[in-house]
Structures are given as structure tokens and as C-alpha cells.
Amino acid sequence: MIDNNIILRVKNLKIQFFTTKGVVYAVDDISFWLKKGETLGLVGESGCGKTTTVLGLVKMVPTPGKIISGSIEVDGENIIPLSENEMRNKVRWTKISMVFQGAMNCLTPVYTVGFQMMETLQKHKEIPYAEAKKRIINYLKLVGLSEDIIRRYPHELSGGMKQRVVIATALFLEPKIVICDEPTTALDVVVQAQIINLLKELKKKLGLSVIFITHDLATEAEVADRLIVMYAGKIAEIGTNENIYGNKKLSHPYTKKLIQATPRLHKKVDELSFIPGTPPDLVNPPTGCRFHPRCSEAIERCKKEEPPLIEVEKEHWIACWRIN
């Protein structure tokens, strides 16, 4: 059954890292989908598998990692069996592009910004130089940068400017899916706000389908329509913003704690709440539900059996024995 509205479908994806210390179960059997034109947020603690998942989407998982099983369907076509060449020519940047976190180091220091943008554009599209240049300038304007950025080297630009360059580069081939991996984390608050506004604008103008990774719930709420909460390589909860932030009762314990931990501007806070414990070791993950060692509502069953994702209401899935 091909749902024309769904542009990305991930089924039972497993990614593992084979290190000298053992096998790391970084992404363990996750499934989700992305609809055309929607922004899907992906939240979780550091090391929960967010970045690895999206790297898997473009098959750029770094060694010693490997995609073990599952399928990733982009526009109906499973990209996992594709060869490197096919990925390079057909998928990367043309169908899926990425805006990396910490854009500090995403641009090669010895080439000008213009050179690198032109290189990317001309690799994927056979258009004459003048036209390519025009398109680059257009997109730079779109992200609020002037034309002479082209002649600059990456180290001459501020963090915010570099991030905009990266965004422009991610967009100018008009890909179907844009992945933003914590694009604002390394920037100061003012620039952060600018970038977020820019992204919202572009989303509207170009009708992008976006996966937006962040660990900051506030940003997520601003930018995304639906969100996925990941924990220790597994999906804990999927739902729309209303479902997750609105409904206090139907909530995964982890999500509850995350929301609690986010300080509010208008509420007086005597003590910051936090989640006790540390993220688990993914070489030897906990048995049953991976969150149970840190969960205040854990029952016996949580220690033995892994809870599946169950739809608790429309467009809202939770993986927890307590809820089901």
C-alpha cells in the first residue's frame, strides 16, 4: 500500500557498531514515517541514537557501524540495497540533504564557500556556470546572506553565517527531505532565534519535509508538528505536539520527565528537576524496557519484557507497560 502522503518510511531499522569493546546496539528496531510537508521532531538525550538514525538515512554511518536490517523507503523506493555510487548520484542531496550540527567544521577550510557550493550544485545538476551562480546567489539571499560571501573562506564567517551557508547548500537542489541535526545548538540565543525563524519561513515557502533533531524541547515545540522521543536506541513515544505536550495522562514516563525538566520562563522554580541516573551502556543494554532503571513508575513486567509501540489515541504511540 503506497500512501502518497508519506515521503519517508523507516521499518525495523537496526544499526550496530562493532567496536573492540563489543557490539553497540545504537539503533535497535525503530520504525517511523515522515509525511510530505511536515516537520518531524526527533528528541532525546545525547547518545540515544538520533544522529546515528539520520546518518543511516543517507547511509553515511561511520565505521565501525553498519546497518544490520530493516528498510528505508524514500518516495516508495528502499534505499538500503543501493550501492554507494547510486546513493551518491541519486539519493544524497538530491532526495535527502542534511544540515549538520556545529557548523563550525562542516566546510573545508581551504576552499572558498562559493567553490564548495558550486562543486555540490554542479555535481548533481548539469547546468551552465552562470545559471548555477545565479541559483547560489538566490539561495544565499533566501537565507539572508549577501553575494560576496561566495569569495570568503569558512574561517572568515561567524557561526551564524556558516550555518546559513550550510542551510542554503542543503536547499538549493530542492530535495524532498531535509534533515536538520541540532542546527542551533552551538549558537548563541539571538542567532538561534534568527535561524529558527528562517527555517520556519523556508518551510512555508518551499513546502519542505523536515526531520528536526534537537535535545531542547522548547525549540522542538516551535518548529515541529509531530515528534519522536527516542531513548537508548529505541523509540519511546511518537505523537503530535498537542498529544504529547497537551495530554498529561497519556505520556511515556521518560517524556514526562523531559517536559518536567524544561524550565519555564513564567513559572517560579525552586529546584530544577532532573532525571536521576545516566543513559545506559548500549553494549549491554538493560533487559526489558530500557528506561526501567531510571523510571519511577517501573513495575515487574518492565524489567523482563520490552514494551511494544501501541497506538493509545489517534496519531499517538507509546511504548510503555504502564499505559497499556
Binding site: M60, L107, P109, V110, Y111
Partner: peptide, 26 residues
């Protein structure tokens, strides 16, 4: 092992260019 090499590969630049262009030039 630098980030920008990975980023360049993600942009679909062929391995030859990554190695002899970006890497060697740096």
C-alpha cells in the same frame, strides 16, 4: 577523520574529489 570530509561525502561528492581535492588540498 574531520567533520568536513564527512560533510562533503554526504553532499554526494565522489570519493576521488574528496580525497584528491578536499583532503589533499588541506
Amino acid at each position: 577523520q574531520e567533520d568536513y570530509i564527512m560533510a562533503t561525502r554526504t553532499r554526494g561528492i565522489p570519493e576521488r574529489k574528496v580525497l584528491y581535492g578536499h583532503a589533499m588540498r588541506t
